[in-house]
Design a protein around this nucleic acid. Structure first.
Length: 615
RNA sequence: GCCGACAUAGCUCAGUGGCUAGAGCGGCUGUUUUGUAAACAGCGGGUCGUGGGUUCGAAUCCCUCUGUCGGCUCCA
């Protein structure tokens, strides 16, 4: 989207916020207005209606009111008022929130708790922080304090829909009055609005929490606790196949598996600095034997540094690469938990490289290639953000190290031909990083994989190797994860595929459906299943006393890639006609083929981890 | 954590102060022996999330806790 279009859309959305406020004011003249900004995909307005609560049953009434105002094509008229006059206005209008904003403008020249750029304010002052004049916009009989800009008149606002209502504190501060936040989405055209609503609809259908239950992948138990998913046999296959792929990609480029316990004395995190920084996210574990305070590990790097530090290292030994797909525990705020996307037991496909400064590029290069291969296999487009430091002093580590590292990261990204963009000020305080953004099937972008350089932990843990001149030097640490976290990856991936997993990941790859319960049928199906299992396939026999139609239906609902009906015909000829899940079928009709041939093809397909079949 | 909504059978849901709490699907049993998206019949299955309170009487009203969902970053 170019800047013009985006400014226009911004003005439309902001104008809609005013139109919504005007409509509400017509219905409830006593409403006290808060703020009404533009947000991603739309706008909102914070309202205080005293004791009365707006509910979504009122949306139609408000939307009708908005449409009436739009139809009236009221011009948006900008006017300036001296601040004293504006304050009088707010008092007369009985708008206490606006009054508060005006007082802030008068006093500090900003309405933001944070310092925002004074140029952005659009207020005409004397250049100091004080404000003399403030701008107002009027449409019809509604006037609002506003820096604009707006569209010319109320009929130029595109398409909108009110979406939801939620509670919000005035200015986001607990303790302030609770207001109602009324959200709308808005786009330049009906078509774009429809597309957006369709996307939401589609996202709802694919919701991984719903599919997780329907496909029998994972469950939660009140007794275990929130944010602690339990994986069923089917879900566990998915987890493990994905983790295995990630492990293999890393082992191929020289990583070695390590294993660490899930708890540690808290001193480890004091040393790493995490205790001070993330202390409130740590689960504490108390020993009944000793006075030691233990914690569940919230990350793996401190443990891994202990393995690196367990023996003297030469520059010739580097890079040392450790991989471990293991679970960390973080006591996330309960309100932030949801499905698999935000959990308290997080399984990371974690990797740590200890290397020399001059090895960064090659190491990162290999990880980029691994990430590219993984996301190619799961059918998600990748682009990367190179996150650099800015000029502020918020970073640790020598400047030369940063500069060399940042240019090595860039070289590695370019060598892999991935789409990338650079951003200053997005680095972690301990080093620059590469964030991978994966686009799913309905166009949403997710940050999953990551490669982060770390100049700080090697120092904190006094890691060192001996260089060619015999000096003790700190290695650079690289943290990377390809899936990111298995749980979060699954939440994205289930929605990406809508549960139609490719053969290599499908918990059940082939289902054999018997036509009747006669011994010969059952035995034949059993034999086919055993042959498939020998080839490493996940084959199930459905010998239930149900109609063939019903059993087909069940296989379809579980999104099993291949279903095969076994009856007299198959027993007689030894040939089968696979029923192929629609999304992976390449043609409408399928030929019959021998059982052996079929199983071998599927086994090959599973092994090669292709997303679509060519069977 | 905070605000709001919600929590009824394994699942999806009906039941809003008054008889023994219901349906469909799933489960079990029987009949049927089935040919590519739902055979038929019968039977089980619930301290209505937890604990407390109000009431002659609570799934239903109030409070607590637990859990789920939406929001809590976006600043005239």
């Amino acid at each position: 989207m170019d800047g013009d279009t985006s400014n226009k859309l911004h003005a439309m959305r902001h104008s809609l916020a005013h139109i919504m406020a005007s409509a509400i004011k017509r219905i409830w003249p006593e409403v006290k207005l808060g703020v009404g900004p533009v947000v991603e995909n739309g706008f909102y307005y914070d309202l205080d209606l005293g004791g009365m609560a707006i509910s979504d049953a009122d949306f139609e009434k408000i939307e009708d009111g908005m449409r009436a105002i739009i139809k009236e094509a009221q011009p948006f008229v900008r006017s300036m008022k001296p601040i004293d006059e504006a304050i009088t206005w707010a008092e007369q209008e009985k708008q206490p929130y606006k009054l508060e904003l005006l007082h802030d403008l008068q006093r500090a020249g900003t309405t933001s708790a944070k310092d925002i750029n004074p140029e952005e304010l659009g207020v005409e002052g004397d250049g100091s922080s004080k404000v003399d004049q403030v701008s107002f916009y009027t449409n019809g009989d509604f006037t609002d304090l506003c820096r604009g800009p707006h569209v010319e008149s109320t009929d130029q606002v595109g398409a909108f829909k009110l979406m939801r209502i939620s509670g919000a504190y005035w200015r986001g501060k607990e303790g302030n009055p609770q207001m109602q936040r009324l959200y709308g989405v808005a786009f330049a055209s009906d078509k774009e609005l429809r597309q957006y609503l369709n996307m939401l609809e589609e996202a709802k259908k694919r919701d991984h929490r719903k599919l997780g239950q329907e496909l029998d992948l994972f469950v939660f138990s009140d007794m275990v606790g929130s944010g602690l998913p339990l994986f069923t046999p089917r879900g566990t296959i998915l987890r493990e196949e994905l983790a295995r792929f990630s492990d293999e990609l890393r082992e191929r480029v020289g990583f070695q598996k390590v294993w660490i316990p899930h708890i540690t004395k808290h001193e480890l995190y004091e040393k790493s600095g995490h205790w001070a920084k993330f202390g409130d996210e740590l689960f504490l574990v108390k020993s009944q034997e000793t006075s030691d305070q233990f914690v569940m590990k919230p990350m793996n790097c401190p443990h891994h540094t202990r393995i690196f530090a367990s023996q003297p290292r030469s520059y010739r030994d580097l890079p040392v690469r450790y991989l471990e797909t293991t679970t960390v525990y973080r006591d996330e705020k309960t309100g932030e938990l949801g499905g698999l996307s935000r959990v308290r037991s997080i399984t990371q496909d974690d990797s740590h490289i200890f290397c020399r400064n001059d090895q960064i590029e090659e190491e990162v290069n290999k990880m980029m290639a691994a990430a590219a291969e993984l996301y190619q296999a799961v059918g998600m487009k990748l682009r990367v953000r190179l996150s650099y430091r800015d000029e502020s002093g918020a970073y640790l580590g020598a400047m030369e190290l940063w500069e060399s590292a940042q240019s090595q990261l860039k070289a590695a990204v370019r060598a892999n031909g991935l789409e990338y963009f650079e951003e200053n000020g997005e680095a972690a305080f301990y080093g620059p990083k590469i964030d991978f953004m994966a686009t799913d099937a309905i166009g949403r972008e997710h940050q999953l994989a990551t490669v982060q350089l770390d100049f700080v932990q090697p120092e904190r843990f006094e890691l060192e190797y001996t260089d060619a001149e015999g000096n003790r030097v700190a290695p650079v640490m690289v943290h990377c994860a390809l899936l990111g976290s298995v749980e979060r990856f699954l939440s994205v991936y289930i929605e990406h595929t809508a549960g139609k997993f490719p053969v290599w990941l499908a918990p059940e790859q082939v289902r054999l459906i018997t036509v009747n319960q006669e011994d010969a049928t059952r035995e034949f199906a059993q034999k086919v299943a055993e042959e498939g299992q020998k080839l490493g396939l996940r084959v199930h026999v459905d010998n239930d006393n149900e109609s063939v139609g019903k059993k087909i239906r069940n296989a379809e609902l579980l999104k099993v890639p291949y279903a095969i009906v076994i009856g007299e015909k198959e027993i007689a000829t030894g040939e089968v006609v696979p029923r192929i899940r629609k999304d992976i079928a390449v043609s409408e009709t399928t030929d019959s083929r021998t059982v052996d041939e079929f199983l071998k093809t599927v086994a090959h397909e599973a092994k090669s981890r292709v997303s679509k079949t060519s069977l």
